[in-house]
Design a protein around this nucleic acid. Structure first.
Length: 186
DNA sequence: TCCTGATCATAA
DNA sequence: TTATGATCAGGA
């Protein structure tokens, strides 16, 4: 797994017939549903943050929460929890009960607030001051092959410069809430 | 111990 | 290079 991190996700997409590829679209375009695996422990505890999408560092003119990539991706999600304790061999890991989810008003509020705060900082040219600890449910973290990768962004003077690509992640606190809610009603 | 920042594989 | 899929691992 150290060298095949996204393998489980790719397997699920293949088995369930999702449109493969690296397009910035939902896994099931006709249904508008995004497929995401959710690594949990055997106790039902979320083990990792969940990658949502890359963060646009340029071309932000006119975008808001309503038309953001994050909102579109999270409109409908098929969560597939996988028991992924690190002492369990990959071949013996089990898929827990999957569930379809859409944000409630309260949940979307949380997401929108964090998204707005992070996006504001990007627009203001403070990308490099953003750390993973920002936000309650969303965080902005490096999303690259390594720390040497670069993408274009704009600083506070509106001038372009190269910086580390970032991506939006859902914090474990948020995905844990979703999982707990699902467990209660099932 | 856990979270943040870093890293790995692959396609186009 | 940018996008997809994520997990790893060291420092706080």
């Amino acid at each position: 797994m150290k060298r095949n991190k996204g393998w489980v996700g790719l397997l699920l997409e293949h088995v369930l017939g999702a449109s493969a590829g690296s397009r910035p679209e939902p896994d099931f375009p006709e249904l508008g549903i995004e497929l995401k695996t959710l690594p949990i422990s055997s106790q039902g505890k979320i083990l990792e943050t969940t990658f949502v999408s890359v963060a646009p560092l340029k071309g932000l003119t006119g975008i808001n929460w309503q038309n953001s990539w994050v909102k579109k991706k999270l409109k409908r999600v098929l969560w597939v929890p996988i028991i992924s304790d690190k002492n369990i061999p990959l071949a013996q890991r089990q898929v827990a009960s999957a569930f379809i989810w859409s944000p409630t008003v309260a949940e979307e509020q949380l997401l929108a607030m964090d998204w707005q705060e992070l996006t504001d900082m990007i627009v203001l040219g403070e990308v490099e001051n953003i750390q993973g600890k920002h936000g309650q449910v969303l965080q902005l973290r490096p999303k690259a092959a390594n720390s040497q990768a670069k993408t274009q962004a704009f600083n506070c003077d509106g001038k372009p410069f190269m910086t580390l690509p970032r991506g939006f992640y859902l914090k474990t606190y948020f995905t844990q809430m979703l999982l707990n809610k699902h467990l209660r009603i099932s």
